[in-house]
Amino acid sequence: MQVEQRDLELIQEAIKVIDRNFDEVNERHTVGAAVRCANGKVYAGVNLYSIHGSCAEFIAIGAAITAGEREFETIVATRA
């Protein structure tokens, strides 16, 4: 499978969400994810550290579902 420009843009969105939310002092929010829906909309999220934690991918998909999305095309995750 070949990486396309739109895939690189999705990776950039995952990197941007880490850049906006990285907590260097506590080393929190070190993973960012972005999901592209079938209609082309992109939703992003960062991981959360807590008693149980939550993966960035779950957060991004949850944001999409909360917005009414149900069909997903591609998801990526990156690490700070």
Rank of each mutant, 00 (worst) to 15 (best):
E27L: 14
V3T: 12
Y43E: 01
A33Q: 10
A67N: 11
A77G: 05
Q12E: 15
N47V: 00
R20H: 10
N47T: 03
E57Y: 05
E57T: 07
V76R: 11
Y49V: 02
V31C: 11
E9K: 15
N39C: 08
V31L: 14
V46G: 01
T74P: 01
A67L: 09
K16G: 03
Q2G: 04
A44H: 03
E24R: 12
R6Q: 13
K16T: 06
E9H: 08
C37Y: 00
A38F: 11
I51N: 12
G40V: 07
A80C: 07
N26M: 08
L48Q: 14
V17D: 07
F58M: 10
V76P: 05
I51D: 15
T78N: 04
R79Q: 04
I51A: 12
Q2I: 08
E13F: 08
V17P: 09
A44L: 04
I65W: 11
N39G: 05
I51T: 10
I18C: 15
L48V: 08
K41S: 07
R36F: 02
E27T: 03
G62Y: 14
I11P: 01
A56F: 11
V46Q: 01
I59W: 06
T74S: 07
I61Y: 15
F72P: 02
A33F: 07
M1E: 12
G53C: 12
G68H: 08
Y43G: 05
A77Y: 00
G62N: 13
L10N: 09
E57Q: 13
T78Y: 07
R36D: 02
I11G: 00
R36L: 07
F22R: 14
I51Q: 12
N21E: 13
E4C: 04
R70T: 13
A44G: 01
V42C: 05
L8M: 14
V35N: 05
A80D: 05
T74Y: 13
E4M: 12
K16C: 03
R36N: 04
A34D: 07
A33Y: 09
D19N: 13
V17A: 08
